[in-house]
């Protein structure tokens, strides 16, 4: 049984249909990507999952059934907006939020220390939240989401406002939690982050599923009939190639329908080319995203 199972969710706010038909399942221990352009319905879908909103139709099963008050302590949610108390000192704010998740103050303080050090926030613990930079506040948000050691982590745009160093720190933390068996649902519109972390994804557009499944499989399904090649020297003339376009420091060869990648490789070998790189050209998630959303 999936840890989270969302089935045909619908939610409207007045005349606006925020979620029209969204379904997906998240398996225990995986990192799942909830993707979509701005306004696609990602945040509303998350809030429906968390019982913040009631759906107009559809069902949500989380940790083997509907959401209950007791289950809320087993879930960590990081909202997109900075839901921290700006006037409170950082440490007091994080401890308070942890106590709402069922931790005692003593436990919360004890668990907080290593996280503050990991994210380089220990020296800012007494500062008011509003005195911290955007990135520091985002790191504080991440800490408040994981401090009570949840079984499911739901993060809405987790790397928003983080510089590359802190983004890597946050990714490392997510991977560490993933290794410990925590189920992670990550909502974002920044595709390359998904490619690095997620096993499976659902892509939502205009409140509906448009792509869903294993990430590698999706990329294969959307790949064109092309290979990427890098050779030492000039690329010789090859039969069956329709077009040659530069791609980073390699070349992308678009093949006609009768020519297979293996035949191209054989031609290169037979012409004694020094091959440095040869691969099936899979589209990036960004390219798939743009293709699918523009088709919609």
């Amino acid at each position: 049984m999936a840890t989270v199972e969302v089935s045909h969710l619908k939610k409207a706010f007045g005349p606006t249909q925020a979620v029209a038909d969204v379904s997906f399942a998240v398996e225990k221990g995986e990192i799942f990507g909830l993707l979509g352009p701005n306004g696609a319905g990602k945040t509303t879908s998350i809030r429906l999952m968390l019982d913040i909103f009631q759906p107009d139709a559809g069902t949500v099963s989380i940790l083997d059934g509907p959401m209950t008050e007791a289950k809320k302590n087993r879930i960590g949610y990081m909202p997109e907006e900075r839901g921290l108390y700006q006037e409170m000192p950082l440490e007091a704010c994080l401890i308070y939020l942890a106590t709402l998740k069922g931790l005692s103050k003593t436990d919360a303080r004890r668990r907080l220390q290593p996280y503050l050090e990991h994210f380089d926030l220990a020296q800012h613990r007494a500062k008011k939240v509003k005195e911290l930079s955007k990135g520091m506040q985002q790191k504080a948000q991440i800490i408040s989401t994981v401090l009570h050691e949840p079984e499911i982590l739901i993060m809405d745009e987790p790397f928003s406002g983080l510089d590359p160093v802190n983004t890597q720190l946050a990714k490392d933390l997510m991977l560490e939690l993933h290794r410990r068996g925590v189920t992670i649902i990550m909502s974002t519109h920044i595709m390359h982050q998904v490619e690095e972390l997620c096993n499976r994804i659902v892509l939502i557009n205009q409140g509906r599923n448009v792509l869903y499944g294993d990430l590698a499989q999706i990329r294969r399904e959307h790949s064109g009939h092309a290979v990427r090649v890098k050779v030492d020297g000039e690329l010789p003339a090859l039969a069956g190639v329709q077009a040659v376009t530069p791609h980073n420091d390699a070349l992308q060869l678009t093949l006609d329908q009768q020519t297979s990648p293996q035949e191209i490789l054989q031609q290169l070998v037979s012409q004694h080319c020094a091959i440095e790189q040869f691969e099936i050209a899979l589209p990036s998630l960004d390219e798939i995203f743009i293709q699918v959303v523009s088709e919609q």
Partner: peptide, 14 residues
């Protein structure tokens, strides 16, 4: 307005 109230909804706080 700041969203801290919504965050409360994800905790067992009625």
């Amino acid at each position: 307005v700041t969203g801290t109230l919504k965050r409360l909804l994800t905790t067992p706080t009625s």
